[in-house]
Design a protein around this nucleic acid. Structure first.
Length: 112
DNA sequence: AAGCTGACTATGG
DNA sequence: GCCATAGCCAGCT
């Protein structure tokens, strides 16, 4: 198991309920900024992870649910987010910046 | 082995 | 503001 994938899963699972983050933020936190694609790829491979990964809390920098298509159904991601208090405008998160959760700010690699 | 693809992002026209 | 291009890197054909 690549450490990168495991770290991505750990970070994603640490995302608080009702908050969301972007692929780029996770990539940056892991020190692979610019490789946001790898974060998305990790989500795609999340099925390989033992535990559930709340990939629905991870959207692109625009707050768009670009990955919804990879869920059980496109509406599943929206419902999951709305269930957590996330308001959606179509496929875009409302007040995205306010609900944005930046791991590089909220978390500390030296702590815990 | 080489080329394509992808749940991204930044930059430029 | 939308379309095109480039960088990114692992997996698939």
């Amino acid at each position: 198991m690549s450490d990168f994938f495991s770290k991505v899963y750990e970070v994603v699972k640490l995302i608080p309920t009702g908050r969301i983050t972007s692929y780029g933020a996770i990539a940056k936190y892991l020190g692979t900024s610019g490789s946001a694609r790898m974060v998305g790829w990790a989500m795609n491979a999340s099925h390989s992870h033992s535990e559930f990964v709340p990939a629905h809390r991870v959207v692109n920098r625009n707050g768009l649910l670009t990955g919804k298509h990879h869920f059980d159904s496109p509406e599943a991601m929206k419902e999951l987010l709305e269930n957590e208090g996330i308001k959606l405008k179509g496929d875009q998160i409302v007040n995205f910046e306010a609900k944005f959760w930046d791991p590089s700010k909220e978390l500390d690699l030296n702590s815990n």
